[in-house]
Nucleic acid binder design. Structure first.
Ligand SMILES: NC(=O)c1ccc[n+]([C@@H]2O[C@H](COP(=O)([O-])OP(=O)(O)OC[C@H]3O[C@@H](n4cnc5c(N)ncnc54)[C@H](O)[C@@H]3O)[C@@H](O)[C@H]2O)c1
Ligand SMILES: NC(=O)c1ccc[n+]([C@@H]2O[C@H](COP(=O)([O-])OP(=O)(O)OC[C@H]3O[C@@H](n4cnc5c(N)ncnc54)[C@H](O)[C@@H]3O)[C@@H](O)[C@H]2O)c1
Lengths: 204, 204
DNA sequence: CGGGTTTTGTGAAACTTTTCTCATTATAGT
DNA sequence: ACTATAATGAGAAAAGTTTCACAAAACCCG
């Protein structure tokens, strides 16, 4: 019960917010599963892992579910995040800053080796790399997003870990190497598309 | 042996290209696994599922591995893809067009409801939605990327399926509902960050 | 108030994926 | 040519994840 359970809980949280906005106050595992694209049993198992219980026949109360989920994900604390590489993807993420779920994740600064990017107004202030230490300490940042070209990604990763970063979301199409105590999440958008193309070809 | 096996094969392919560029001609499961972030046994299992074999003591020949992987992923065929929603993420993807792995995935057109986006020069031509049918048929497109706000995503999805799209990569933070024969890959970038924050909090 | 219905919670079963183990064999060195 | 070595391939075991199945509880309605 590791990654997938956590990602599903975050999805449930999103769905519950939606149901709440629609005026619902209670929900059944069946409806939540339907919205989140999983089976009702999966929903109940996911909840039971975290000791979340509902009421037989009456399902779950949305409001209290959200309170528990917010506790699990520390939605009361602010988590400052930095972004290295203010190119296309980096800029897209920077502009999304005020949408990050629940507003408990904040992109506080971007970094780029290119001085031209350091002036660009992109939702967050952009700095040269020699300001890394200062800002990581100043904003108590422990999570970073890497959006530099693959050839520089490992070097940037090492640098970030050296400066105290503990969690990394990497968009460069390589698998970053890092000590086991560092949380690394590698996302490869090209692979996500290629995989769809593969499955479509299989169907034929 | 489903999604993860395929994603790993695509990653191996990327790593092998890199090793090839570095001048290597043979590789061991140990080295490939190391580069791709998995165990050597996993590499061999992944290969054996697709009937790929190497040589005892001498490992795998990179060139022939790449040929087989290219066959598995139909790298010889061109796969045209469209993009709906030319906002921040859509534009980032459009500008990445000529980098998509192996150059067998092409973004041929973007679509947006906003006429202002239809003029913008962003790597690919952008059209209004009423041109969907025409371009899907003209370019024989079966895969689409959805980068519209969540509130419009399901509607766009239905529209695309209606026009003949069979595979969808969705960036809107909802789980799209689609018939079982349609391949849907939902990516939620916010969740990817939130998950890292969660694991970091767990460590403390 | 009590029987019928609905939904939860969970242990067991089924299934999937990864790791372990080791016989086998290709290669390199002697 | 022979031997030692090093790596694969695959079956078995382990670990992880999802689905099944059903008892128990809460609610509704008569
Ligand atoms: N744009 C996409 O749609 C897309 C899709 C798949 C993968 N990716 C990957 O995401 C990453 C970013 O893509 P992009 O399109 O935004 O690239 P980009 O070229 O637009 O941006 C890269 C930025 O990183 C900066 N940079 C380079 N080296 C640096 C370093 N050592 N330190 C700090 N900054 C540095 C550059 O100045 C540039 O601003 C790449 O690894 C790319 O392969 C992007
Ligand atoms: N930008 C990010 O970093 C980021 C992060 C996480 C999730 N997302 C998600 O990705 C999606 C796109 O994000 P974005 O930042 O690019 O948004 P955006 O607002 O910049 O772009 C959305 C685009 O979609 C167009 N659009 C809206 N409704 C449409 C419709 N019915 N048909 C066609 N086009 C339509 C708009 O005109 C706009 O150009 C959103 O669902 C967002 O929640 C984005």
């Amino acid at each position: 019960m590791i990654k997938s359970n956590i990602k599903r809980l975050l999805q449930y949280r999103l769905c519950l917010t939606k149901f709440k906005e629609l005026g619902y106050s209670r929900i059944f595992s069946y409806n939540l599963g339907n919205e989140a694209g999983v089976s009702p049993e999966q929903v109940r198992k996911d909840f039971s892992i975290h000791g979340i219980t509902g009421n037989k026949k009456a399902g779950y109360e949305i409001e209290s579910l959200l309170i528990i989920l917010n506790q699990i994900f520390r939605m009361d604390e602010i988590h400052n995040v930095i972004l290295v590489g203010m190119g296309h993807i980096g800029t897209a993420l920077a502009n999304y800053n005020n949408h990050f779920i629940g507003q408990n994740v904040y992109l506080v600064a971007g970094f780029d080796m290119d001085p031209a990017k350091q002036n660009k107004k992109t939702g967050i202030p952009v700095f040269p790399l020699d300001k890394l230490s200062e800002l990581i300490e100043g904003f108590q940042v422990s999570t970073a997003i890497i959006t530099v070209p693959p050839v520089s990604a490992q070097e940037v990763c090492n640098n970030l870990i050296d400066k105290g970063i503990k969690g990394i979301l990497n968009f460069a199409p390589i698998v970053l190497k890092a000590p086991k105590n560092i949380i690394v999440n590698n996302i490869n958008l090209s692979t996500e598309i290629e995989a769809i193309v593969y499955y479509l070809n299989q169907q034929k």
